[in-house]
Nucleic acid binder design. Sequence first.
DNA 1: TGCAATACCCACCAGAAGGTAAGTATGACG
DNA 2: CGTCATACTTACCTTCTGGTGGGTATTGCA
Lengths: 120, 120
Amino acid sequence: MTDRDWRCEDPEQQLVWASATSEALRVLEGKWKIVIIIQLFAAKKPLRFSELERRVDGVNQKMLIQQLRQLEKDGIVTRMVYPQVPPKVEYTLTEMGIALGPSLEALIDWAFMRREALGH
Amino acid sequence: MTDRDWRCEDPEQQLVWASATSEALRVLEGKWKIVIIIQLFAAKKPLRFSELERRVDGVNQKMLIQQLRQLEKDGIVTRMVYPQVPPKVEYTLTEMGIALGPSLEALIDWAFMRREALGH
DNA sequence: TGCAATACCCACCAGAAGGTAAGTATGACG
DNA sequence: CGTCATACTTACCTTCTGGTGGGTATTGCA
């Protein structure tokens, strides 16, 4: 475990924290990734492409695939192909995807706090 | 406090969590925002425009202002203008900006975990 | 024969985001 | 009068992201 006091004075360390966080955020960026991840979290089981398509409201096939591929590349989801016809492909969260839980929870908390503070 | 178990089965709730998180992320998105926020956190004091320009490596004036204005609009930073010549403008984190702390920490933790897992 | 089901791929387009280089406003100071 | 410092603003260009509407491959089944 590294020292995590990113409010420290060391400018070098600040650069490290900043770049680490930017990197982490890049994995979550894009219009659909969070929604996909939360759907996979909520389902608690592998989801087929078509199931995701149904659950992620408003997404189209190209976008869904694109984001899934990026999430796969980033180690957040696993793609499992069943060689049958018609095709069947299942997506699951990896361990690293599951490990995102606390961050997402913290973000959710902040979002709701903010909502209340802004009076919505 | 609302129920925060976003891994629940209720599809309606999932939509709420998903949209809340997307909203929160939108506030942090953009190439420079995280770096700006972390610099303000680390400084523990108001920073002038030119100080930020120096601390946020690689940013140009237009981008820095643009992102600062968005952060201001989103209630993350405060812009304080001193009416003097040459001009002096200071930027501070709002309460809501400071409240981002735990989320950022969780993201940093995850980012470092991921780094180790990927063997960097 | 030909259609259905599933998970894609491709060409193309529009708008948003990011970036560069120059200009502006102000008043103190020499 | 001209220069300096600071915090912007503007015009313009390039790149990235999101989106639409088509097409494809495979095999079972009517």
